[in-house]
């Protein structure tokens, strides 16, 4: 949809991350209940996925909860992983290191300014970093186009995804019950969105 590059994170973070500690998985219990920080200090950038990025992308899909357009990421074969990427898919990097994928899809009429967003970050990043990525992406989108509704769909079982979306201000709209079998049980898909008043 759009090529969004070099989205420098705003906020009160520490600027450029300099060490691997920034990427270390934190205890989620310290991240789930607090208020969203204004920023994580990452310098976000994004680019279309090329063949040279496939190794990094395949590595992301070895994570059991890298739910980017699939509910079973770590058992998908190579061809299927690569088939999930399209011309609108962007490789998201934090401080130049690939950390995730996102893709934007139009929902409804082209003129309606409604979008679905698929965004997934590595489990190495904390939920507040996810929220920072969401906010930066939204800032970039709204800078270059009108956005009335931006929706994400997250599995009920996806605690990290739900936490990140809520931290980024997405509000729950409803649950499509039982459309995914996860770990032997039927679970639903949670629809969340952020909505802005249309200008026309």
């Amino acid at each position: 949809m759009t090529t969004t590059t070099d989205m420098t994170a705003a906020g009160t973070g520490t600027g450029l991350a300099t060490g691997p500690d920034t990427y270390a998985a934190a205890d989620p219990s310290t991240d789930l209940s607090g208020a969203a920080p204004e920023g994580t200090g990452f310098r976000w950038s994004a680019r279309p996925v090329t063949a040279a990025d496939h190794a990094a992308v395949l590595d992301l899909f070895t994570e059991p909860d890298f739910y980017f357009r699939t509910h079973r990421p770590d058992t998908r074969p190579q061809w299927e992983v690569l088939s999930l990427l399209d011309e609108d898919t962007r490789l998201l990097s934090a401080d130049g290191r690939p950390v995730g994928l996102y893709a934007l899809e139009v929902s409804g009429g082209e003129h309606a300014c409604h979008f679905f967003l698929h965004l997934r970050l590595t489990a190495r990043l904390r939920p507040d970093a996810w929220a920072s990525a969401y906010r930066e992406l939204i800032r970039a989108l709204r800078w270059q186009r009108e956005v009335v509704r931006l929706a994400v769909v997250v599995g009920e079982f996806d605690d990290r995804g739900l936490t990140a979306a809520r931290l980024a201000g997405f509000a729950e709209e409803g649950v499509l019950a039982g459309n995914i079998v996860h770990d032997g049980h039927r679970r639903g898909s949670v629809f969340l969105s952020r909505i802005w008043e249309p200008t026309s």
Binding site: L58, F61, D74, T75, Q78, E80
Partner: peptide
């Protein structure tokens, strides 16, 4: 035992 998706 963890199963993983096929790679070339």
């Amino acid at each position: 035992m963890m199963l993983r998706g096929y790679r070339d």
